[in-house]
């Protein structure tokens, strides 16, 4: 049995160790956000954060994740209390069908956690592994910029208060 730390909770997993994280999240833990898109690491719909890095959950077997910190979109906020990145996507209405969005948000979140001052260019470069078919790219970029601004303000705010 594998034990995973997901969104701050320790979870015991029954699935065999070779099972990709995606199927454990969806099938065993009933977490909806990570999506099956290709199973090949080509589209980014399954992206989650492991130890601060955005990874494809569809090709990452759970046996590699014991003891590591996993964050899914559910860990960033809820419909009642969305996190800053989620708020930004809502504010920009940055979705059409929305299927690719959880993966986009997770990669953007990992980037901004690492580099709150990420430039537009580095945001685009970072999102290169991700596909959106509805053509929502302009909004997605706007939403990430908005989140970056908000997160910067918050950091600045915290600094001045200190």
């Amino acid at each position: 049995m594998t034990t995973l730390t997901i969104n701050g909770e320790s979870r015991s997993i029954k699935a065999s160790p070779d099972t990709p994280l995606l199927y454990v999240l969806r099938d065993e833990l009933a977490l909806n956000a990570a999506k099956y898109g290709c199973g090949l690491g080509q589209c980014g719909a399954c992206t989650v954060i492991v130890d601060g890095k955005a990874i494809f959950s569809c090709i990452t077997p759970v046996m590699l994740l014991e003891g590591r910190t996993i964050t899914t979109l559910e860990g960033l906020g809820s419909p009642d209390a969305p996190g800053p990145m989620q708020r930004a996507f809502l504010a920009e209405q940055a979705a059409q069908c929305g299927y690719c969005i959880p993966g986009m948000i997770m990669r953007a979140q990992a980037l901004l956690n690492r580099d709150p001052h990420a430039t537009d260019e580095s945001i685009k470069g970072e999102l290169q592994p991700h596909l959106c078919r509805c053509g929502t790219h302009m909004r997605i970029l706007r939403a990430i910029r908005r989140a970056a601004e908000e997160m910067k303000l918050k950091t600045a705010d915290a600094r001045t208060r200190r």
Binding site: N32, L73, E74, L90
Partner: peptide
């Protein structure tokens, strides 16, 4: 420009799709 009613679930991991 009323905000779309389906987007909150889609950006927070709600059951938004038949897949879910």
């Amino acid at each position: 420009p009323v905000p779309r009613i389906d987007i909150p679930a889609k950006v927070t991991g709600g059951a938004a799709y038949v897949q879910d």
